[in-house]
């Protein structure tokens, strides 16, 4: 569904990614793990058009989206729930979610049943339904994360990018986030997941890539990576 080929990207003169290739097959969850500064978030940003890659190709559902501006990539069916949540604090929960469906608008008319999808999101996140008219800025961190995920789902995306959905959340809420990721997976949503909690991410994912200094160090089925001692030592927070 999503194919990244030999991608190079960075900020200004600083090259962060040195030719990485990742495949995200339809209906699968692929996770990207690695230490801070390895280039996980940069990969996500390059895919969703927040930064322009300097070389390489990104193909979404057979369409080349390399270097396109992010609003076009969103229209092509890619949703990105960014690191740090980035909800719109001065808009209500419902407005945030409706904006998630913005790419489905053509001349003010939505494609498909936006209200129905809104209901489905509220079913998935009952907390958000309770707070539908509250301003997003007044939500707690966990609720904002649910809103960010819900907003991304509103696009009915071909591929969903989740960047650090558990960041800054209490353990109980982290479990909740992973429960939702599982639920989405069961619905068949294709996902690329970046997580600092590598073990939890590998538990939910089908396949994993390990990034190190902007290159893929190894990749394989999640089960296999989970039991790789080197991976555990470096990324699961345990000493040798």
């Amino acid at each position: 569904m999503l194919a990244i080929k030999e991608l190079y990207a960075g900020y200004g003169m600083v090259q962060v990614l040195h030719g990485i290739s990742i495949e995200v097959p339809q209906g699968k969850v692929v996770t990207l793990i690695g230490s801070n500064g390895a280039g996980k978030t940069t990969t996500m940003r390059a895919v969703s058009g927040m930064i322009k890659p300097s070389a390489g190709r990104i193909v979404l559902a057979g369409r080349d989206i390399t270097g396109k501006p992010s609003h076009k990539i969103a229209k092509a069916g890619l949703a990105h729930s960014p690191e740090g949540r980035r909800v719109f604090p001065t808009l209500s929960v419902t407005d945030n979610l409706r904006l998630g469906a913005y790419p489905r608008l053509t001349l003010g008319r939505p494609r498909g049943d936006v209200d129905g999808d809104l209901d489905k999101v509220f079913d998935l996140f009952p907390r958000l339904r309770e707070r539908r008219d509250q301003l997003a800025g007044t939500l707690s961190g966990g609720e904002q994360q649910m809103l960010a995920m819900g907003r991304a789902i509103m696009l009915n995306p071909e591929v969903l990018l989740l960047d650090e959905p558990s960041m800054g959340l209490a353990p109980l809420l982290v479990e909740e986030v992973f429960r939702i990721i599982r639920a989405l997976k069961e619905r068949g949503v294709t996902m690329l997941l970046v997580e600092q909690f590598a073990a939890a991410a590998l538990n939910v994912a089908d396949y994993g890539y390990v990034l190190e200094n902007g290159s893929i160090r190894c990749h394989g089925p999640a089960e296999k990576l989970k039991n790789d001692p080197a991976v555990r030592a470096a990324y699961l927070g345990q000493a040798h």
């Binding site: 558990s166 353990p171 109980l172 982290v174 479990e175 909740e176 986030v177 992973f178 600092q196 909690f197 073990a199 939890a200 538990n203 699961l236 927070g237």
Partner: peptide
């Protein structure tokens, strides 16, 4: 460090 439910690991 391990996040939600270390017991799952």
């Amino acid at each position: 460090y391990l996040g939600g439910g270390a017991e799952q690991q």
